[in-house]
Write a protein that binds this DNA or RNA. Structure first.
Lengths: 247, 247
DNA sequence: TGCCTTGATTATCAGTCGATAATTTAGCGT
DNA sequence: ACGCTAAATTATCGACTGATAATCAAGGCA
């Protein structure tokens, strides 16, 4: 009801959005675009700050004000879940399923092609950090992703390896076999963590590192599986493949 | 000035410190004890909530009031660093140095003993969570721990393996060799992450999982090192051990 | 027993957080 | 050109954060 609220409004705008100085006329995006922008910038923010990153800082990255977020997401928690979905569920290339199961190609080459391509997709600072933040937060979506990895990658590795090695098929891989597949997965994964999370000096040729890891893994399990089949726990020596059931 | 402020005080105390109901007379600890208690409970809190865990919640766990924290630590950040120190720097058993370097024992057995004992120390929910939180926060203390692992564990594994395999000694392990050692470390580490961070069903016999991983690793690298020595990059095939220098 | 050091408490501040209600205004359809 | 829908803003709330100053009181020492 008083004169000149004009000047004050102008100043408030400048202070509120210093991140994007030039494009001041950004207004009225379609709901779809706005929502996508929120999710994308939120992924960037949460990757750096964790899910505790502020909604105001997020709004600044978009050049809008903070309450606008709540026109598109009922709560911050729901934004987080959508970020999570966009980062994880949409990055699986269906091609990989076919690749891993293609018995016309030797298992060695299948695994090399898969892991080189798969790590191209997930070995980014953003993906790895959000993955770890989500794990620490205990989101159930994270557990579901792990189960996905277990079913779509690791179980297949065991099944396909056994097939190529001429070992008898099983209904389900033994727990000890799954642990060996996880050993491979974890060993490769940690390369990405060292490089992109810790920023350490690593051997830069990622595909060569993967190839070496696969050499070690496949040579290693071939000897292990061979002995376990040959002696069938005749010795008291560790027998790997025998199932003790999952806990 | 009125009767019964007694009741109100009583209620306030109960609301403020519900964590430790019976010992209400806890007062006047020596500075040393109090400080240790703060660090220990802070480790528990930060492991669950991350370093964003509140100072009031921490005080509640101790049954004291929040400002008391600032008699022992100038700021929360400094408390975090002391927590970090107590969790990481004090858990290395000097015995492990001798164990890894003891050439009277076969490398296979040295590694098994070491990793079984080492993982007994670090495979706890608290250690793993603080380790990952610290990594995401980018604390330089974390980088220093990684370098420690690299020097005290991984370099030694390569050196000792090469010695036992009769390979010529090097001034420094090749970058590709360090990557293989990291592959082992990461593969074992991920077992702890799956169990204690994600709470997944794993094969419960940790020492057997480690033994299997070592079988695979040692068998694998023995073949790899042998071929690389035999053919010296005669083929165009990948040669592992040749150094390309660290980035 | 009474004092005095110091551990511990109460009261409080300034800043930030997620979220809500009311208001403004951009831009399409007529 | 106007008007209406809805995108975006301003203003604000209550809860919670780390931190400070002033006050209280436990317990060793005389």
């Amino acid at each position: 009801m008083t004169p000149m609220p004009r000047m004050k409004t102008e100043r408030a705008r400048k202070l509120a959005a210093p991140a994007t100085p030039p494009p001041q006329k950004q207004k009225r995006l379609s709901p779809g675009e706005r929502k996508r922008d929120f999710i994308q910038k939120a992924a960037e923010l949460f990757a750096e700050e964790g899910f505790g990153g502020g909604t105001r800082e997020l709004a600044n990255k978009l050049g809008v004000t903070q309450p606008l977020l709540y026109r598109y997401f009922p709560s911050k928690e729901e934004l987080i879940e959508e970020v999570y979905r966009s980062v994880f569920l949409d990055r699986w290339d269906p091609e990989w399923d076919a690749l891993l199961a293609d018995r016309a190609v030797p298992i060695r080459e299948r695994l090399e092609r898969f892991y080189c391509s798969y790590t191209d997709a997930i070995f980014t600072r953003q993906w790895l950090r959000i993955y770890l933040f989500a794990g620490l937060k205990g989101l159930d979506l994270n557990s579901r992703y792990i189960e996905f990895v277990q079913e779509r990658i690791l179980t297949r590795i065991i099944v396909e390896y056994r097939h190529e090695a001429g070992l008898p098929p099983q209904e389900k891989p033994a727990a000890a076999e799954m642990e060996l597949a996880w050993f491979l997965q974890g060993g490769i994964f940690y390369y990405g963590v060292r490089k992109h999370l810790y920023g350490l000096e690593v051997l830069e040729d990622k595909d060569r590192v993967i190839a070496n890891a696969l050499d070690v893994f496949l040579e290693g399990i071939s000897r292990l599986f061979a002995t376990s089949v040959r002696m069938r726990s005749a010795y008291g020596r560790r027998s790997v493949v025998r199932d003790e059931g999952a806990a």
